[in-house]
Amino acid sequence: MENIKFDLQTTSVREINKFLHHEIAEGTVPRIIIEHPDGAHNIAAGLNVNCEVEIRGHVGYYAAGMNQHASVLIAGNAGTGVAENMMNGRVHVRGFASNSAGASAHGGLLIVDGDAGLRCGISLKGGDIVVGGSVGSFSAFMAQAGRMVICGNAGDALGDSLYEAVVYVKGHIKSLGADARIEDMTADDHQALESLLNQAGVSYSMHRPSDFKRIASARNLYHWNADANQEY
């Protein structure tokens, strides 16, 4: 069986996505390769079949968004909202990702080898995110479930209003958001980190779980406190 190749200079995003949604059955194509993405939006969004997609270049907004089962490799940089609302599967960005990477992801694994912009993992609902570089401000804002691993630094207000998601940071944290706190790493955390770094790929084996800090919710915002005077 041969790989299937598309070229976005000659085929539209709509046609390629239509093919990916309706015209492949699981296990029938080893790999779908998309060339010349040139920053187009919505490439490989909403994939509901277990298949492998490789995008050779930089993508625009919402690439591989709402992914259900596919494994998508972006050999380039990603615009806003890569893998947003992912349900399952795997999305790997070789370059950097812009704002809101992995926003609201319910499941699956997003890997960003470079930096991720602001609001990475905002409202995370159960997915996992591993960032090889640093993340911008307001990352993991209101993250409800899932795990985020940041191998570089974090910007301002990390984990503001966190629920039950857990964030691991190796580098410097510019500031924590309201109700986020640094906690001791447990044996379970070490194991979780080890497994996530393994899943992210060989280049992540250089990181040791013991070098990371655990950030989780202090849960003070879970119940409204009339005496807090808006200071949390």
Partner: peptide
Amino acid sequence: SEFRSLAH
């Protein structure tokens, strides 16, 4: 604003 204006 976006990469698609730089691709060429």
